[in-house]
Amino acid sequence: MRALLVVNPTATTTRPRTRQVLVSALSGQLDLEIVETTHRGHAIELGTRASRESYDVVVALGGDGTVNEVVNGMLADGPRPDLPALGVVPGGSANVFIRALGAPRDPVDATGLLLEALREGRRRSIGLGRANDRWFIFCAGYGLDAAVVSRVERARGNGRTATPGLYVRSAVAQYLGGPERRSTSVELKVESDDREPEPSGRFGAVIVQNCSPWTYLGARPVNPCPEASFETGLDLLALRALRLPSTLRTVWQILSPAPDPHGRQVLRRHDLSGFVLRSDRPLAAQVDGDYLGELTEMRFTAVPEALRVVV
């Protein structure tokens, strides 16, 4: 079985010696080509090459950002039946995608499960989302949460480690000091949906999920849209205002053992096939925890069975 292993050498939770053990285990079962990424976007280039050169499997060893880039490369020419399958060995801080699939977050255990799935020919087809021209696997955001991602990326650029504490501190700082709390500029328009669209109004922040959970704080799943699934369309949670009492109540609802965010300031939609978010001023945007910059429009589409995963 011909396979390409895309390794992020700066992955936060795997040391070089551990990565060597994992590579050796994979090499024993696969005709393996190994490439380490050297720059942002490199994994996109590698995923594109793998999809055009008839590899059977592409394995991403890294965090969710590496997986997102690999997937965007694999789907550069769109979904098709003969695309390679995707395997993942987690090496990041959160590893949301692999955990959402029910696989272990420990890289050694995950490699063992991956090798077992390869031997048994196990594959799972999952739906993905598109935000403008960017594919995403598990989440996207517009407004507050994307601005938090930007803060975290700047902190990591200054040598900080992406820990749950860093995300919490960045979220509090952005909420208190950013412009999102004082402005509700996002408009929602549902497209390609058989149901009657709700009056959208304006929103201060929007979270989009392709699966559940949205992310993790350590071992705790964070679930704004608990019904989201790889087998359905996209789910959405939008906050009409970011006033302190209502925001704290929504955060509490999201973090509860049985999450059910609701209230006058909350709009939730399930299983959407398409929608557009627009703002009269550029707002922060992110997909799968990767900051995209500030945009005035995000056009979302759900794509069923876009990718086969080895799991």
Rank of each mutant, 00 (worst) to 15 (best):
V7Q: 15
V7C: 06
A11T: 07
R15M: 09
P16H: 10
R19P: 01
I34M: 04
I34S: 00
I34F: 08
T38G: 15
R40E: 14
L46G: 04
S54T: 13
S54R: 11
E69K: 00
E69M: 06
G73D: 14
A76E: 08
D77K: 11
P84Q: 07
P84E: 04
V88I: 13
V89K: 02
S93H: 09
S93D: 01
I98S: 00
R99P: 05
A103H: 11
V108Q: 10
V108R: 06
G112T: 11
A117H: 12
R119M: 13
E120D: 14
R122V: 14
G127F: 05
N132K: 01
Y142D: 12
L144H: 00
E153F: 08
A162R: 15
P179A: 03
S183Y: 14
T184L: 15
V186R: 14
V186N: 06
E187D: 14
E187Y: 13
P199H: 14
Y216W: 03
A219D: 09
V222R: 02
N223Q: 11
F230N: 05
E231S: 10
L234W: 00
L237T: 10
L242H: 05
R243S: 15
T247Y: 10
R249N: 04
S256V: 00
Q265L: 12
R268Q: 02
H270P: 15
G274L: 00
R278L: 07
R281P: 02
L283N: 08
L283A: 00
Q286I: 04
G289V: 12
D290Q: 07
Y291V: 03
L292Y: 06
M298S: 09
R299M: 08
R299K: 11
A302Y: 05
V303K: 00
V311W: 11
V311E: 15
